[in-house]
Design a protein around this nucleic acid. Structure first.
Length: 683
DNA sequence: AGGGCTAGGCTTTTT
DNA sequence: GCCTAGCCCT
C-alpha cells in the first residue's frame, strides 16, 4: 500500500498529466505498452485520496470481467482501509444491469427478470421465425445480428421497420418487433438491452437521468476504442453536464469493428466536448526499439486522426525473424522446434512464449507438433463452460425459479429430467396459457387446464409446478443455495445425466460441473453481500448472483492454471492486452492475414491493426511465419506473402527460407543449420 | 427418443 | 475436406 504521491512521482510526465487532469474531459491516447492501466488505477486512487472524492461517486468501466476484476484489485491495493468502499469498477453490461435493477418500474420490468444470453435469444428467435417462414439456420444468425446492431444504435423496432430499405430488412424488423414483445412478456432482457434500456430510458426520463448524474460524478472508461454507439451514448448522457471523465484508448488497437465497436467515437468525443484534453502516451515500456519500429511503420499505412509514434529506451534488440516454410505442416513443426531450442538457448520458461494466429483452426496442427515434442501449452478459447448442456439446463432451472414468467427456461427443462410431458401436452398448455395470458409455469397449476388436457397430463404438470414452488418457498425462507442443491438432488438430475452419457465417468464430470456452478453462485452471493451494493434481501441476492452468472462474471477458476508454465496459444484478438518475451505470429499470408473476407469487404485497416496488436505483444523477440502452400477447404493452394510484410522496415528483418534468385542454396543451408543446432541441443 | 444422414459453410467473440 | 446443426426417420 504505497503512498499515492510516491506512485504519481514514479510516472512519466505524460502519465502524470493524465492522472492529475481532473477538471474536464480527458482523452488518453495510450499506445500499446504505455502503462494505461497504471494511469487509470492511479487516477482512481488519486481522486479518492488526494481530491477527496467519495469512492461511491466514481465509476470505472471496462469491457471484460477479467479487466474489471484486475483493476479493482489494483486500486484497492493502493488505498488504505475502507476508502475504496462503494467504488464501481465493472463492465458496461454490469453497470447497465445495475441501472435497470434500480429502475424496474420506469422500464416496465418486474423483479427477478431473466437475462437471456445470445443462445437463449437464438432459441426464441427460431421459434418466432418458424411461424412465418421456413427457417434457414443462417437466416436466424443474420436476423440476430441485425437486431443486435439496431440495438447497438439505439433503434427501436418501429423506426427499424419504417426505415427498412429492403424486404429483407423489413422482415428482420418485424421479427425484432415480435422478439421485443416476447421478451417483455417473459420479463426478460437480452445482453444488448443492458445498454440500450438505460440509454433510451435516460432519453425519455430526464428526471431518472438527473438522479444518476447525482450518483456518478466521475467516470473512467478503459479500451475506449471498443465502445459501440449505445455505450458511448450512455457515457455521454451521464457525463454531459459535469464533463468530468477520462477515457483511455488506442485507435490503432481497435479490432472489434465487426461486433459494433466504433473507433470513430474517439473523434466524436472531440466534437461533443470541445474542451477535451487529449494526452498521448507514446513511451513504451514493453518492447525493443526494433519491434516498435516495425509496429510504427506498419501502422503508418493506416490513416490517423491523432498521430502517435511509440518509442522505448530499451535498446535496439534482435532483428525480426521471418520464416517461410514449404507448407503449413512445416510451419507448425518449425514453430515447435524453434520454441524448443529458444527455450534452452535463452534459458527461458515455456510461459515466455506465445504463438498468435488469425483463426482458431491454425492451432490444431501446432497442437499436434507441440504434443509430439512434449511441449506444455495452453490453448485459449475452446468450448466455454456455459455452452455445456448441463450448465444450460441448470441455468434454466435457476432462471425459472426467480422468474416464473420465463417460458423459454420452462420449455427447456419441463421435461428434463423426463417427466413424461411431451410436445402435444405442451402445445395445449401453450394455447391455454396464451388465451389466459399467463405464463406456462403459472398455467400448470390452473384448474381450467383439465378442460383442455387429460387427467394424467394435468397431474404431471401440476406435480412439476408444485415441485418448483416448494423449492421457491424454501429459497425465500432460508438458505437459498441449500434449496437449490436440494432441488438438483430431489429430481435426481444425476440419474438423468447417467442415462444420457456414454460412460458413467462423463456423467460424473457433468454433475460436477453443475455443482461447480452452484458453488460459484454461492461465492458470488457472498461477494455481493460483503460489498453491500444496495440494501437487499436474500432473494434479491440470488437474483443478482444469477445475473452475474449469465454475464460470466464469476471467479476465474483457471486463475491458478494461468500461472503455470506453458506456451500460450492465442488468436490475435485474444492476445490484446497481453505481453510475452517471445512472440510468434503464424500465417502472414494474403487471404489469412489480411483475411480473405476482409480483403473482399475492404476492411484491410482493421486487419493491419490486428497485425499491429500481434507485433506489439512482444517484449524481446518477434518471429513471423508464413508458408508457400496451405490447404484451404481441403484444397492445396499457393500462398502469397502478406502485404503487411512489405510494410515492415526491410533492414530490421531477417528472412529464413525465402526463395532467393541470387542465392537459391540459402534456404537449404539455413534449414540444415537449424536442424543441426537442434540436434546438438537435444543431445 | 435417439441416431444417422445431408447440406451448407468455413474469422475474429465479450457481455 | 471436415464439421455441425438440424432434419427426418425409425
Amino acid at each position: 500500500m504505497s503512498d499515492i504521491r510516491e506512485r504519481i512521482a514514479g510516472l512519466n510526465p505524460r502519465q502524470r498529466e493524465a492522472v492529475k487532469y481532473i477538471d474536464g474531459p480527458c482523452l488518453v491516447l495510450a499506445g500499446a505498452g504505455s502503462g494505461k492501466t497504471s494511469v487509470i488505477t492511479t487516477k482512481i486512487a488519486y481522486l479518492i485520496q488526494e481530491c477527496g472524492m467519495s469512492a461511491r461517486r466514481i465509476a470505472a468501466v471496462t469491457f471484460t470481467n477479467k479487466a474489471a476484476r484486475e483493476m479493482k484489485e489494483r486500486v484497492s491495493s493502493m488505498l488504505p482501509g475502507k476508502s475504496g468502499h462503494g467504488l464501481t469498477v465493472s463492465t458496461f453490461h454490469t453497470l447497465g444491469l445495475n441501472i435497470i435493477k434500480s429502475e424496474l418500474k420506469t422500464l416496465g420490468l418486474r423483479s427477478g427478470f431473466s437475462l437471456f444470453d445470445p443462445e437463449d435469444a437464438r432459441v426464441l428467435l427460431r421459434e418466432l421465425m418458424q411461424k412465418d417462414a421456413q427457417v434457414d439456420a443462417d437466416q436466424i444468425n443474420r436476423v440476430q445480428g441485425q437486431i443486435s446492431s439496431w440495438k447497438n444504435d439505439l433503434i427501436l423496432p418501429g423506426p427499424a421497420l419504417s426505415h427498412a430499405e429492403t424486404e429483407d430488412e423489413a422482415f428482420c424488423a418485424r421479427v425484432y418487433e415480435h422478439y421485443t414483445r416476447h421478451l417483455r412478456a417473459y420479463n426478460a432482457v437480452d445482453f444488448d438491452d443492458l445498454i440500450m434500456l438505460p440509454a433510451t430510458m435516460f432519453e425519455r426520463h430526464p428526471e431518472v437521468l438527473a438522479k444518476w448524474r447525482r450518483r456518478i460524478h466521475y467516470m473512467l472508461v478503459d479500451e475506449y476504442q471498443d465502445t459501440n454507439s449505445s455505450q458511448y451514448q450512455l457515457v455521454r448522457m451521464l457525463m454531459a453536464e459535469r464533463s468530468t471523465f477520462t477515457v483511455v484508448g488506442d485507435d490503432d488497437q481497435s479490432i472489434y469493428a465487426w461486433r459494433g465497436a466504433r473507433p470513430e467515437n474517439l473523434v466524436q468525443l472531440g466534437e461533443d466536448f470541445p474542451s477535451l484534453n487529449v494526452i498521448k502516451l507514446e513511451q513504451n515500456y514493453r518492447s525493443t526499439a526494433v519491434i516498435l519500429r516495425a509496429a510504427n511503420t506498419l501502422i503508418a499505412n493506416n490513416p490517423h486522426v491523432y498521430e502517435k509514434t511509440l518509442w522505448s529506451d530499451k535498446g535496439l534488440g534482435e532483428s525480426i525473424r521471418i520464416i517461410m516454410t514449404r507448407n503449413e505442416e512445416a510451419e507448425a513443426e518449425r514453430v515447435a522446434t524453434e520454441i524448443l531450442t529458444a527455450r534452452i538457448k535463452q534459458s527461458a520458461k515455456w510461459k515466455d512464449f506465445a504463438v498468435l494466429y488469425r483463426g482458431n483452426f491454425q492451432a490444431r496442427l501446432l497442437e499436434l507438433k507441440l504434443q509430439h515434442y512434449q511441449i506444455p501449452y495452453k490453448l485459449s478459447g475452446g468450448t466455454s463452460f456455459f455452452s455445456r448442456n448441463e450448465i444450460k439446463d441448470a441455468m434454466a432451472y435457476l432462471r425459472l425459479l426467480i422468474n416464473p414468467a420465463d417460458d423459454n427456461a420452462f420449455l427447456r427443462i419441463v421435461n428434463v429430467p423426463r417427466r413424461e410431458i411431451g410436445p402435444t401436452t405442451l402445445e395445449k398448455l401453450a394455447n391455454y396459457a396464451s388465451e389466459r395470458r399467463v405464463s406456462l409455469f403459472a398455467a400448470c397449476s390452473e384448474l381450467g387446464l383439465s378442460h383442455v388436457l387429460g387427467e394424467k397430463a394435468v397431474e404431471r404438470l401440476g406435480r412439476f409446478n408444485h415441485f418448483l414452488e416448494a423449492i421457491r418457498k424454501r429459497m425465500d425462507q432460508g438458505d437459498a443455495i441449500a434449496a437449490i442443491r436440494q432441488m438438483f438432488q430431489e429430481m435426481d438430475y444425476e440419474a438423468w445425466l447417467v442415462q444420457n452419457a456414454s460412460a458413467p465417468a462423463i456423467a460424473e464430470k457433468r454433475m460436477a460441473n453443475v455443482w461447480t456452478l452452484v458453488d460459484q453462485l454461492e461465492q458470488s452471493m457472498h461477494r455481493g453481500t460483503e460489498e453491500g451494493d444496495e440494501a437487499s434481501e436474500e432473494t434479491d441476492d440470488v437474483e443478482a448472483a444469477i445475473s452475474r452468472l449469465v454475464l460470466r462474471d464469476i471467479l476465474d477458476q483457471q486463475a491458478q492454471e494461468d500461472d503455470t508454465d506453458k506456451v500460450q496459444l492465442l488468436t490475435l484478438h485474444a492476445s490484446k492486452g497481453l505481453e510475452f518475451p517471445h512472440v510468434y505470429v503464424m500465417g502472414l499470408e494474403e487471404e489469412l492475414l489480411p483475411h480473405r473476407n476482409s480483403i473482399e469487404a475492404n476492411t484491410i485497416e482493421e486487419e493491419r491493426r490486428l497485425a499491429y496488436v500481434g507485433i506489439t505483444r512482444a517484449r524481446q523477440s518477434l518471429t513471423l511465419t508464413l508458408t508457400k502452400q496451405r490447404k484451404v477447404y481441403g484444397e492445396m493452394m499457393d500462398c502469397t506473402p502478406s502485404r503487411f510484410l512489405d510494410e515492415l522496415p526491410e533492414e530490421d528483418l531477417q528472412w529464413f527460407g525465402r526463395p532467393d534468385k541470387e542465392n537459391p542454396e540459402q534456404k537449404h543451408e539455413r534449414g540444415k543449420e537449424a536442424l543441426a543446432g537442434l540436434r546438438s541441443l537435444l543431445g
